[in-house]
Design a protein around this nucleic acid. Structure first.
Length: 838
DNA sequence: AAGAATGAAAT
DNA sequence: ATTTCATTCTT
């Protein structure tokens, strides 16, 4: 039905080639409205801000990238004739903002499930909270309307008019709005007259989702490159006048930077997530819930080691200052782990002079490596792309020769390469960083948390950076262009990291890269929490066995030279494993459910990635959370940012909040909702403090924040049921889900939750623990409170009940998935419904 | 491509 | 009342 109605999309694809731009519904951006109207500032401040900023940026951006111009017109025309996309409503906004969160919680859940949950949350959300979203939606809508005066939600009639040609539009829909803005529109000012239709194509490219991503990445990379460049220059000792250089680079960089900053700040979600992810902030932020130590550190370590080993090599070479050949060899070495290890033996004594020498060589290497990589990747990429485009086709042809035979294999390969590269680059970076002195340190990073001893924050940062870097790299590879920028950026990043990590710049500073350097590399580098050597040894051994666990210990061991070798091996392994993971990275980011079940690894990674995103201070900005969207946004730049800002400004609620709310709501319900003040206030608080709360919670429980959430959620469930998705669902499915709670009342939502639980259980090896712990911590309090305060009924339902239900379900179905069957069964089950509340 | 959810708007 | 469609993304 839907499909039929729309009809747009399908045609689009076909049209792609078509001459016409095919932008059917471009997404509308607030900016547009402004531009269009421009003078009237009826809207809100936000818009104004955007406007002011936009124009300037745009201009600049245009120059640099030349995207700007075209879209605008398209929009208008389209809007007039065709149609802009509808503005999102509050709920959608909410979804957009929270979906990622939900996904995190329930990795296995598919989107639909997520949507359901979101709906539940939304239902639970208090009006007050909702209002923000509502307001925003309204604002958005108003702006939209302004921009498109005669916009009709339903095109019905108009459609036919445009008909054929228009249909083709396509427009990947991807997030156009960022784009649109600018240029021509303003000049025209008239909303209506677009007219220029000349160059839709530019956009187009952007528009293409596939392309877009890459492109955006590219752009991003470019930005990044600039930034990095700047930094690099400044960093280099030889170049004292960073300022002059900086000035030479246009303001763009500065602007970019500035832009970046604001964005990051707003993201509550990220922070929240981060906190959730990292149970132990002090020791290892990066640690994933499952207990994975920080990989990053491992990676880092490895890099260091490599560096050290390299230094040793260099010694050998010594006389040759810039040895490209050496560099090449180095690369190879890097690739081959074994070799590395062996060479490692030699590590350790890198004379200062060598070190200095190294620098150049390293830099050269870096460039080389980067360059070298791209081509291969490019080809591969192409293959991949093809595949993605026509999976089916590929399959049919599968035979042969086609370079892209196996998608998987290729993909893997690609990843692997990328990983290697990344590693290599990392190493280089490290080397550089080490080599480099401290100037940057202070600037680049703020060493905010001295107390923990550097270990905590720095690690995180480094990790994040690395990840980011990797990502970028990959993307670059895909795109194939704009690599150098990345490489430089990566270097920069690494440097930064190094700086941060190294606590002390003092020593380094004292000797600009000379003798101390060695020391710094080998020992000082700081192992965040360096312990006694003896310990290290032991740990090392252990490390060898298990790479994962090892990481931490390895990190610690870093300092001691003895263990280095062994460590290397371990590290290498770890890296390898990581690499594998990396290949999965993409999947991981999402939920990666299908491929690997080893949720642990994935989970940790995903978490990391998230963290990384958050952290990235210098990040181009917006890697942000979701990859897909970001890309496009990035390219656009400012507009998007602005919009995002607004969007981000919206409160993001942590699951905990919902849980609480749920509880509260339940209470309300029971109570009759007459009085909620206290509770409400509490909730609000919770919301506000959610971040902190989460942290604490996470800390307390290494297990998983998510798990913690569950119980509450369930509690919430009771409430949700009513609110949930009755409307449509009820109609279609009717009351599909009826679950009986302890008291006998039924709750629809529960079913879902239960499902989730089951899923999780399946996934997670130790559901029991979680449950138990959860019970202890959470439920009791909640339930108690609920009971006391209000009615007993709801209070009853508790984990136990849930558990029972879950168990039953499990028995029946065994595993996940059968929502329908479950529903049916449930329905059959004797339950009654909401009436129970009476 | 379908579909999950909610909401706004049009029909 | 009902239908459309906005967003996201797996299946």
């Amino acid at each position: 039905m839907k499909g039929g109605g729309r009809g747009k999309e399908p045609p689009v694809a076909g049209e792609v080639t078509g001459k016409r731009p095919k932008r059917k519904c471009l997404q509308w951006h607030p900016l547009l409205s402004k531009k269009a109207l421009d003078f009237s500032e009826e809207e809100e401040e936000e818009d104004e801000e955007e406007l002011g900023k936009q124009p300037v940026l745009c201009g600049e951006e245009q120059e640099s990238q030349m995207q700007c111009g075209s879209t605008t017109e398209e929009m208008e025309e389209d809007s007039h004739e065709q149609r802009a996309r509808r503005p999102m409503n509050a709920f959608l906004l909410f979804c957009k903002r929270h979906r990622s969160l939900v996904r995190q919680e329930h990795p296995r859940l598919d989107n639909r499930g997520a949507t359901k949950i979101l709906a539940d949350w939304w239902a639970v959300l208090e009006p007050k909270e909702k209002q923000k979203y509502t307001d925003m939606a309204k604002e958005y809508k108003d702006a939209f309307m302004k921009a498109n005066p005669g916009y009709k939600w339903c095109p019905t009639t108009s459609k036919p008019v445009k008909s054929p040609s228009s249909q083709p539009v396509s427009n990947p829909r991807k997030k156009v709005w960022s784009f649109s803005s600018n240029a021509s529109k303003d000049s025209t000012t008239a909303k209506k007259v677009p007219k220029t239709d000349s160059m839709p194509q530019l956009n187009f490219a952007m528009a293409d989702p596939t392309k877009m991503g890459g492109l955006s990445m590219l752009l991003l990379a470019g930005e990044h490159a600039l930034t990095s460049r700047e930094i690099t220059l400044s960093t280099k000792p030889s170049l004292p006048d960073s300022a002059s250089e900086g000035s030479s680079f246009p303001t763009d960089k500065e602007e970019i930077l500035s832009r970046t900053v604001p964005n990051r700040v707003p993201d509550i979600t990220e922070s929240r997530v981060k906190s959730a992810l990292s149970p132990l902030p002090e020791s290892s932020l990066s640690a994933a819930p499952e207990g994975k130590p920080c990989r990053q550190s491992a990676l880092f370590q490895l890099a260091e080691m490599c560096l050290a080993s390299e230094a040793g090599k260099m010694d050998t070479v010594v006389s040759q200052p810039v040895d490209s050949s050496s560099a090449a060899s180095f690369q190879q070495t890097t690739v081959m782990p074994e070799i590395k290890e062996e060479q490692a033996d030699s590590d350790n004594c890198p004379p200062s002079s060598h070190t200095s020498t190294l620098l150049p060589s390293l830099s050269s290497v870096t460039s080389t490596s980067t360059d070298a990589i791209p081509p291969q990747l490019g080809s591969q990429n192409a293959c991949v792309k093809k595949k993605s485009k026509k999976k089916e086709v590929a399959k049919s042809n599968d035979n042969s020769d086609i370079p892209c035979l196996t998608k998987k294999s290729i993909k893997k390969r690609n990843h692997a390469e990328s990983n290697e590269d990344s590693v290599f680059s990392t190493i280089e970076a490290v080397a550089k960083g080490a080599w480099n002195d401290t100037e940057e340190k202070p600037k680049t990073k703020i060493q905010s948390s001295p107390s923990s001893g550097n270990s905590g924050l720095p690690k995180k940062k480094s990790k994040s950076k690395i990840k980011t870097f990797l990502k970028e790299k990959e993307e670059d590879m895909h795109e194939d262009s704009g690599q150098r920028g990345q490489s430089s950026s990566s270097e920069v990043e690494m440097k930064e990291e190094m700086t941060d990590d190294s606590p002390k710049s003092e020593a380094e500073e004292a000797s600009i890269g000379s003798t101390d350097l060695q020391g710094s590399v080998a020992e000082p580098l700081p192992p965040p929490c360096s312990h006694s050597p003896a310990k290290l040894k032991e740990e090392d051994k252990g490390n060898e066995r298990q790479s994962e666990v090892t990481c931490e210990s390895t990190t610690e061991s870093r300092g001691s030279r003895k263990s280095e070798r062994s460590c290397k091996g371990a590290l290498y392994k770890t890296l390898v494993s990581e690499g594998m993971l990396t290949s999965l990275r993409a999947n991981i980011d999402r939920g990666k459910r299908a491929t690997f079940r080893s949720s642990d690894h994935d989970a940790s990674w995903s978490d990391d990635s998230w963290t990384a995103l958050q952290m990235g201070p210098n990040n181009p900005k917006k890697l942000k959370k979701s990859k897909s969207k970001d890309d496009s946004s990035q390219s656009l730049g400012k507009l998007e940012e602005e919009f995002e800002k607004k969007f981000n400004s919206l409160p993001q609620y942590s699951p905990m909040t919902f849980d609480k709310k749920g509880t509260t709501v339940a209470k309300k319900k029971k109570t009759d909702s007459s009085t909620l003040p206290e509770e409400v206030s509490k909730v609000d608080k919770a919301v506000v403090q959610s971040d902190s709360m989460l942290d604490s919670a996470s800390k307390a429980k290494s297990c998983a924040p998510i798990a913690t959430i569950y119980p509450d959620v369930q509690g919430t469930t009771s409430m949700e049921m009513l609110v949930g998705s009755q409307k449509r669902k009820a109609r279609k499915t009717k009351i599909t889900h009826l679950v009986r709670t302890a008291d006998g009342s039924v709750s629809p939502a529960e079913e879902e939750k239960t499902k989730d639980l089951n899923q999780e259980q399946d996934k997670k090896p130790l559901p029991q623990q979680n449950l138990c712990s959860e019970k202890g911590c959470y439920i009791n309090p909640t339930s108690e409170g609920a009971k006391r305060s209000t009615v007993p009924q709801a209070a009853f339902f508790s984990l136990t009940a849930l558990a029972e239900v879950a168990a039953m379900e499990n028995v029946h179905r065994g595993q996940r998935g059968l929502a329908e069957s479950q529903k049916k069964e449930l329905a059959q089950t004797p339950v009654l419904i909401s009436c129970a509340d009476q």
